[in-house]
Design a protein around this nucleic acid. Sequence first.
DNA 1: GAGTGGTCTAGACCACTAG
DNA 2: TAGTGGTCTAGACCACTCC
Lengths: 239, 239
Amino acid sequence: MAANMRLEIEAGEFGSNGRLPSEESLAEQYGVSRGTVRNALALLRANGLVTSRRGTRRVVLGTARTQSFQELLSFTAWARSQGEEPGARTIHNRVRPATVAEVEVLQLGAGDEITEVLRVRLLGRVPVMLERTVYPSRIGAAIGGLAPDPLSHTAVLDASGVVFADSEHTIDIVAADPTDAHTLGCAEGTGLLREIRRATDPAGVPLLWSEDRFLPGTVSFTVHNSAAVSSLARRRGRL
Amino acid sequence: MAANMRLEIEAGEFGSNGRLPSEESLAEQYGVSRGTVRNALALLRANGLVTSRRGTRRVVLGTARTQSFQELLSFTAWARSQGEEPGARTIHNRVRPATVAEVEVLQLGAGDEITEVLRVRLLGRVPVMLERTVYPSRIGAAIGGLAPDPLSHTAVLDASGVVFADSEHTIDIVAADPTDAHTLGCAEGTGLLREIRRATDPAGVPLLWSEDRFLPGTVSFTVHNSAAVSSLARRRGRL
DNA sequence: GAGTGGTCTAGACCACTAG
DNA sequence: TAGTGGTCTAGACCACTCC
């Protein structure tokens, strides 16, 4: 697999701000074709690791450290990757009919049921986030009959053969409501950093909708994009 | 150019949640090779427009509307794309020696000068954001001798032949300081949505560093990512 | 088992950068 | 002008989905 080239570049083989060898010489060096080299480099470029420009060799960008898809979906996986101990306290876990908005966003039928989970998330012993997740009932069933506080629902779903493929993250500010204030220990009205996530399976079927509210100062988000390909949008107003 | 295929798909040729024709039939239909088709589809996939999965045809994802690179760098271009009238009021525009942090992030030499611009940005007549931008002096020179309130510095730089190629956006919450409170008309301590941007040219040379502070409720950010390629990272704590 | 996307090859020409 | 990345072609085989 030629995409292992990534590791060598990440290992600083060419230094920060250094120039990569030409595609042709990389191809020779790895014993693959130029097309394969280009595929590998396209990945690095999308992740903001190298530049790309006709006429000159690629340059290593010092910046850009993106996270795996898994870490972006699972608070537990993310916390561990940051060297923190993840925790969870379930406030409720119930099955109820989907609201109109939920029917829309999860592509359900009218009257379908969903599983709603509300949890406080901790780093160490400190609450940092309130997480409200909504699963279609066919997904929710997998986590419905679990022990009260399994750390990672995402891991459970993975093990059940549920495959996450695409996700969309929306980030804005929301004022803490009484529930937020009580569970996170902040004043009502405090501005919380909100991350709304929608994840779908490889066929484009919605698997999950969630709204996470982080205490200020506990988290920040970084996105890389280039003139060639962008995955970021800024929108007017609240969601 | 085969990438025009995008438009046809965006135009809803295959419907939302519809399935695309096979790569081979698209190739025939457009009179190009399969490799070309794959290149075009890779773009659509990165932007979250279609899924991709071995064994089945691609599916159109209803969601995902990303913005152009230009719109992400220029408040003016962005505001217009949202159907709003952009405005700006310059608070100051000065040249001074770079701080240690600025030398680092803009890859300058010790003692180099930078141009710092502080502006309130408006939509219609309403202030929504306070923008602090730092340019290396060679870039700042292009906007230093301008009329007091040119709307878009980015447009001016474009016209001067400055090419933006990559950017990195970091998003978090920051409490309004006295300057923020005064210029944006909010209470001191209010949580503002902060977007820190770094942009580089095609060679990886830093062109700009900026910190934008938005009033709550005026803006939200959306990122798409897939298991194959991610450009998003969540980090612990403040920047 | 037929059809699909993922990966790879070996070549070609072009647009651009930089000396 | 030489070297580089961008685009494209025409083919091959494989892994996977779904009937």
